[in-house]
Every structure is written in structure tokens, then in C-alpha cells.
Nucleic acid binder design. Structure first.
Length: 137
DNA sequence: GCCAACGTTGGC
DNA sequence: GCCAACGTTGGC
């Protein structure tokens, strides 16, 4: 099983929106970047991903599970773009901010820190475990 | 609101 | 195939 981090602006689509979808989950649509798309194509059923609020908050707020592997993005007719489906799995007890992450030397190599513009990115197992602990789960 | 970093586009 | 121009993202 692999670990990922997905970004969204909370005023557009945040953790609460995904929670409201419950077990139905939601398409992670709208990604228009090849690197991000390729990461989604690499996802397997049951993979876990952090939900990161970009711009507002700048924090990891919870964990989602991949419930469908990559398939055509229903928000476009362009066949280049597809996306996975996810559902909210577990909220963090406390959000882990970007500042928190930057303060930890072991997390300095995270894609989140090194390539802040990539909206779908892999997370190493050690990084995953550490951030979960910081989030109280 | 600004701007740096990065990706994409299109002319040559 | 290079690279300048442009658009977007996201931290600050």
C-alpha cells in the first residue's frame, strides 16, 4: 500500500465537503497537471492519502482512502485527464500545519516542502507515520 | 496582493 | 528542439 498527499483549497473543496459525501466519496477531479495525474494513475484501491488545505490553513487535516482507481475526469471532455475517487477515512485530532512540518528535520525532503506546487504527491512511509503521530492518530 | 517557482504553449 | 512569453499555483 502506498501513501499520498492531495491538496485542495478549503473554500473550494475542503475536508468538511468530503466528510459530507460520506461513504459515497468524491472524484478528485480538476487536476490538469501531468505529474499530478501520473501520481493518481499510480494509486491502488485502499491506498491512503492526507487531505491538505492549501492557501487557507496550510495544514494536513485528515486521512482519505482511495476507493476507485483512476478513470476519466467527468469535469472535462479532454481524454488526457482522469482522476481517482476518495472518501474521508479519519480526521486528525489536531491539524498539522506546514510550519509544523517544516520544523521537523526528518520531513525536510517532503515533496510538500520541496515542490510546493505539486497538488498530488507521494508520501514516504516514514513521513506518513510521523505526520500521523503529529496529528494525533 | 505580490511574486517566485514552475509548467505549458507556440513561434522560430 | 530551443526558448521567450504567458498562465497558474501557493506561500508569504
Amino acid at each position: 500500500m502506498a501513501f499520498w498527499l492531495l491538496k485542495s483549497e478549503p473554500d473550494v473543496f475542503g475536508w468538511s465537503h468530503l466528510l459530507a459525501k460520506g461513504a459515497v466519496g468524491e472524484e478528485w477531479s480538476g487536476v490538469r497537471n501531468y505529474q499530478a495525474r501520473n501520481n493518481m494513475r499510480a494509486m491502488q484501491l485502499g491506498d491512503l492519502a492526507f487531505f491538505y488545505h492549501s492557501n487557507i490553513g496550510k495544514e494536513v487535516v485528515g486521512i482519505m482512502e482511495v476507493t476507485r482507481t483512476s478513470a476519466p475526469d467527468s469535469t472535462t471532455d479532454d481524454p488526457r485527464w482522469d482522476c481517482v475517487m476518495v472518501q474521508a477515512k479519519q480526521p486528525f485530532k489536531r491539524a498539522v500545519t506546514l510550519d509544523d512540518i517544516k520544523a521537523v528535520p526528518e520531513l525536510a525532503d517532503m515533496v510538500l516542502v520541496k515542490n510546493s506546487r505539486l497538488s498530488v504527491q507521494p508520501v514516504a512511509a516514514a513521513e506518513w507515520a510521523l505526520i500521523c503521530r503529529m496529528g494525533g492518530v
